[in-house]
Design a protein around this nucleic acid. Sequence first.
RNA 1: GCGAAAGUGGCGGAAUUGGCAGACGCGCUGGACUUAGGAUCCAGUGGCCCAAAGCCGUGGGGGUUCGAGUCCCCCCUUUCGCACCA
Length: 741
Amino acid sequence: MRWGILYDWSKELASCEPEYYRWNQWLFLQLYKRGLAYRGKAPVNWCPTDQTVLANEQVIDGRCERCGSEVVQRELEQWFLKITAYADRLDDGLDQLEQWPERVKVMQRNWIGRSVGADVEFPIPSLGKTIRIFTTRPDTIYGATFMVLAPEHPDVAALIADASDRAELERWIESVRCQSALERQEAGKEGRFSGKYATNPFTKEPIPIWLGNFVLLQYGTGAIMAVPGHDQRDFEFAKQYDLPIRIVVVPNVEPALSRFESAGEPALRQAFVENGVSVDSGVITGLPTPKAIERIIAEIGRLGIGKKMVRYRLRDWLISRQRYWGTPIPVLYCDKCGIVLVQEDQLPVVLPLDVPFTGREGNPLAKDPNFVNATCPKCGGSARRETDTMDTFVDSSWYYTRFISARDDKQIFDSRLVNRWLPVDQYIGGIEHAILHLLYARFICRTLYDMGLVNFEEPFTRLFNQGMITKEGYRDPSDNLAWVPLNEVELRDGKAYRGGHELVPEMGKMSKSRFNVVPPDDLIARYGADTERVYTLFIAPPEKEAAWSDEGVVGAYRFLGRVWNLWERVAAGFSPTGGLKAAPTQLIRKTHQTIAAVTQRIERFEFNTAISALMELSNAITDARADGADVSESYKVLLQLLHPFAPHITEELWEMLGNQRFILTSRWPEADRALMQEDVVTIVVQVNGKLRGHVEVPNPPAEEVVLSAVRGNDRIQQWVAGKQIVKTIYVPGKLVNVVVR
RNA sequence: GCGAAAGUGGCGGAAUUGGCAGACGCGCUGGACUUAGGAUCCAGUGGCCCAAAGCCGUGGGGGUUCGAGUCCCCCCUUUCGCACCA
């Protein structure tokens, strides 16, 4: 309110209200019917502090995105949305997003992690079955000297069933399973021999099957063929456990080839992972890597042991949460009928407001009999209500459509209106949403498209990532680097202290925990909302992080003060007795140049330089007025151009100038190209590339005029005297460079 | 380790296509007006030099060019992203 911001309250929505989240539930039902929502058992990320599961996107460096606790893996039945079914479309769609920052697209591409390769079955003679692996380098299959399974791989139990050291193996598997993702990675590579062998389908040799902590169950098939000669991870594992390494690809450069061969296996210090030429590889011997891959996949297909495969790093979106808040998942469990959807006309399933909170003892919803006990709509028998609620990122993945018809209680939104107004032309958000919200929203938009509800696949045409405003915070080294509240910090000689201890300043995002928040209200109370706005926009380009400085604010305050004070002097210009000179052409020119500059810079989000252009115009008006000129027209333009940045003061001054209608409704000034033209241009003169002087010539400048002016210039003549002019370069309207020897 | 972006005065930051480096603002210095100034106004403010002339100057080193903050190569630093994804 105090910022002076206008909202259309008729479009207000709140995702925690049943009027909104009933459409979350409706959407869930549609996704379920399309096979895009499913309940499944999977190893999931569990935050022990928040007592809830988390999506992969919400685990940062092995820690909970919300509270920072180390995340552990648990095997649980949970609800998922099948975002992986859209992996290729989400990846391909990035190419069309020309007005998105490149780094966001790169982050999404990495997150989706599309890999093209092949699935191949490796026979396990002792089990009488095969184990499937995924590889992006099927051309190296002749070099597969062992196999590694994730410790949690479903076939592990059968493999070690009759092992002599089975108990020890199981203990090891259990210890790996209990590790957090972070611990597991820090442990380094570790493995155990299962005791069984697979057959390499191409060399027909028996190869040992190992279990390894570095093989992930969730990616690919949870099993790999290990090619230590051509995969660095396999190489390290092979070295560690003394497994054979076989070279099947060599660099295709002749000298390198001979060196590689003569060096031999013992000298090999790392795997050769680049493309090259296959050797000792049956039908693909002699082929360059891309051709070899193509050929071997055909061969794999012919043998019926596998096929070309595209796999993704992206996992399905785990939306179950056990933390009470959020949208209840509209599902019932009936003893007879199993999973039963809540009927659409029974929505919303309302989140009860009177549940007892006992602290951190699991989901309070599960303890509320009024909520849990329900009747099965199919058989009429008793049923149990789902107590998981949805990740709140579900709400935000389609809210932008709801703004278009926020009060519609018949449908999720009015497609006709949504297709007219959307997709969003300009979306603004922090980079922290690069893969969370923006990926989910792109996914859900495509599902809406497939349901025929919207006619666009990308929700946000143009994306802009604004930077954060940062501020110094202070930590106390004598108190375990705890953050110190600002009112306890004493600043002396550019250093900070608390009770004699020197504190360590650290620049960072404003947050309550760092005690470095500058409440805008204080500044607004002191300087006004206009100053706050102008300063915030002036401080730095909006995409950049910017350090807040209290001192800098006065610059914006003074600027607005000067514009205010100008009024009295300008007002005199309206008086017929003012006896003022006409506005000088110099000022008129500056005015139109400013119109052009500010208009363009606003469009390009270059607000800091737009404001600096306004400051220049303001200074020019001040100078011209001091010179006794009538500056009223330029002043009016200044107010109009300044209005988007400082609406209150400009509106007031506009009225004081005698205008009847709001400046807001006035027509945006238009730059007159002809009036912007300088009548004299200053040409820079260089001798041997160094600045030696200027000449002024009438605009537009003719080359002969410029060159003769340069020749007639005393200073230039001094620099040229006694030298031979090798050549003269003329850049039209800008510069002359005389090259002498 | 891999990938991306960035590095310009005391500070925040300017600088179409290679063409006057430091716009604009903060801070600082001096002055004016003042009982007062943490208000306002005026002037100055990259470094070397008393000053001028001149020289140097956009993280460091090379290169291309008449001319490089801008283009190319190498290196350093910072920030961000990814990090056993087979």
